[in-house]
């Protein structure tokens, strides 16, 4: 029997969804929009609901309710290999390739391994400390998948032999029900994979010193373009990345090409992506996203140099890496957390 995953302790949290006005605090248009994000989220966003017994600092949600209902409607065909999410299924292997590239680019990606090996980094008071004592667990990675949808990435991450655990969260209950019922179809998943109906904001914040509860890989794939306040969102996400761990994202650049391919062609003409999936105005250009991580001295100390990979969907062939295309359309961005102290 597996020891109870530290992740599971988060489980009772109920997702709190906040109806944010869609328009404010858009990060998208200029990099400067990233500037005020050091403020407390509660200052900048209106809170409509709060959890009645919540003693934690107030938090908001980055997630737009329209988006939730859109993805709920897509839930039924999520795992159909020829259904509406086919393009996502085809992209999934590239996500792993990208993570692999990121992690192998930096020797400090194995930060956790080194410290856990030496054994002196673990707080002796941690109730979870004994679970790290077996050598079998030492090198395995902890994943947090934000906006996991039907679990395409979360399942695949959990299947990797190098994975210790995957916590996958999504605020759309319909989609998450699909994810859970699909995970039942593979007996190898249940020991490693936990789904939670939650936004990142409603996950209990981890104490800065609780390094071992943080994640080696935090992923948000095709998520930022559906988020109302990307900068706030990323501020929040940062706290969950283990020092030495990686935050990996993928999204779409806001260009004429991407409007033509993802909105006009993919949704309207070819119908390979369900109509209404993308709001072109919410797309984020690579320099804008990169800008968030590089803008201030503080950020540059906290994060390493971002790495990008542009990918292009070729009908009939699937996704191909095309250097330079991150400026034009779909791209991945990965950034390693350097700082051991939370910002």
């Amino acid at each position: 029997m597996l020891p109870p995953s530290p992740l599971r302790q988060l489980a009772p949290t109920i997702a709190r969804r906040v109806r944010n006005p869609r328009t404010i605090a858009r990060l998208a248009s200029t990099p400067q929009c990233f500037a005020p994000v050091t403020e407390s989220p509660s200052v900048r966003t209106q809170r409509w609901h709060s959890n009645h017994n919540d003693s934690r600092p107030p938090s908001s949600s980055s997630v737009n309710p329209d988006e939730i209902s859109h993805f709920n409607a897509l839930a039924a065909t999520w795992w159909d290999p020829h259904g509406s999410s086919r393009a996502l299924h085809l992209m999934n292997p590239l996500r792993h390739d990208f993570i692999q590239t990121c992690r192998s680019s930096s020797p400090t990606s194995s930060f956790t391994v080194l410290t856990e090996d030496s054994g002196d980094e673990l707080p002796s008071s941690s109730p979870d400390a004994p679970t790290y004592s077996t050598t079998a667990n030492v090198q395995k990675l902890r994943y947090l998948d934000i906006g996991c949808g039907g679990g395409i990435f979360a399942e695949s991450a959990a299947r990797l032999p190098t994975t210790e655990s995957v916590l996958a969260i999504d605020p759309s209950p319909g989609v998450l029900a699909i994810a859970r019922s699909h995970a039942k179809k593979d007996p190898s998943l249940s020991p490693k994979l936990t789904y939670l109906s939650s936004t990142i904001e409603s996950l209990p914040t981890l104490k800065p010193e609780a390094v071992e509860k943080k994640f080696d890989v935090v992923s948000c794939f095709e998520v930022i373009e559906h988020v109302d306040h990307p900068a706030l969102f990323l501020d929040h996400v940062a706290k969950f990345v283990k020092p030495g761990g990686w935050l990996v994202m993928s999204t779409i650049a806001r260009t004429w090409t991407s409007w033509f391919t993802t909105n006009f062609m993919a949704e309207d003409v070819l119908g390979i992506v369900p109509k209404g999936t993308h709001d072109w105005n919410k797309y984020i250009n690579e320099y804008e996203l990169r800008g968030y991580f590089e803008e201030t001295e503080e950020k540059r100390r906290f994060w390493g140099q971002p790495r990008a990979m542009g990918v292009v969907y070729v009908p009939g062939l699937g996704w191909k890496e095309v250097p330079g295309s991150e400026k034009v359309g779909n791209y991945f961005l990965g950034v390693q957390r350097l700082a051991s102290e939370d910002a």
């Binding site: 290999p81 292997p93 792993h96 399942e155 695949s156 299947r159 593979d186």
Partner: peptide
């Protein structure tokens, strides 16, 4: 390829 990318080796995908 499926194993290294965490795919279910039995799935059509």
């Amino acid at each position: 390829h499926a194993v290294t990318h965490g795919q279910d080796i039995g799935s059509i995908m």
